[in-house]
Design a protein around this nucleic acid. Sequence first.
DNA 1: AATTGTACCTGTCAGC
DNA 2: TGCTGACAGGTACAAT
Length: 301
Amino acid sequence: MPELPEVETVRRSLIKHLIGRTIEEVEVFLPKIIRYMEVAQFQESLKNQQFLAIERRGKYLLAHLSKGWTLVVHLGMTGRLYYLPVDKGQPLSSTSLPLTPSSLPLTKGSEAPRHVHAILSLDNGGSLVYHDYRQFGYLTLSRTNETMCLKGLKELGPEPLEDKFSLPVLQRGVQGRKAKIKQLLLDQRLVAGIGNIYADEILFTAGLHPERSGGSLTDAELKKLYRSIRYVLQKGIEFRGTSINDYVDGEGHPGEFQHHLQVYQRTGQACTRCSSVIQRVKVGGRSSHFCPQCQTEPAKI
DNA sequence: AATTGTACCTGTCAGC
DNA sequence: TGCTGACAGGTACAAT
């Protein structure tokens, strides 16, 4: 689920609820979702710390805390991180969490609902809930000045929406590469934050077939790809992410970008641009959706 | 070094 | 009404 636009939306929606709050209690119901450290140490180190800032790097959320610690969250495929106001009993909006009926209501002392793996209780009576039915996501804690040394974070390429990600940077990452462009877009070392949905949408917008090799792209195509990366990710953020099965933001609200998808999960439907039938192929083990008319064929050599 | 397959999980849906 | 297999937003690691 959570690619750059979803993680960014979670970040923005959590800020107003968390900044200035202090963590009073930490419950962990599934120890394995705490990575790289002992659960007891995770719990102890979080206690009595205040949220100072929330940052995003690629698909990682970084909550900077007082005393020089940073809470690192990766949502994997199905992770949700959301704020529940006051005493766990009252969801922020009972209609806004249609996808988590099993996680509500939370009552003190009761066993955690299925798929709720951790709860941080805050000094205002609210809580920060981590929910993840496939359990691919994780939480960890690091010293703030060492966060970028963590596995996964230290290999990340540039942020696609920042100036550091320029056309020459993309060119250098792609030119001379034999790998298919779809796989290159998913490579977090090349550029951070693109996942399967946005990769397909970016390639459609750029008019590029997912199986084109990186090295086969012309300068004009690279320029179009560069602009498409920025355009599609920005649109994803504007529409607050893509909710297909279970993504919700930090307040439990689904996004709207699923209504604007051009190819992802539209196999067999008509292309919005030319009415050709959208096709699906496997590229590097991932489903890739494309329009055979609008996205130029790979070179047949 | 780069690439491929597999593992980690639960849930849904189509087909028999 | 089951059962089985394919598939689902992501990464990490072993084998080639």
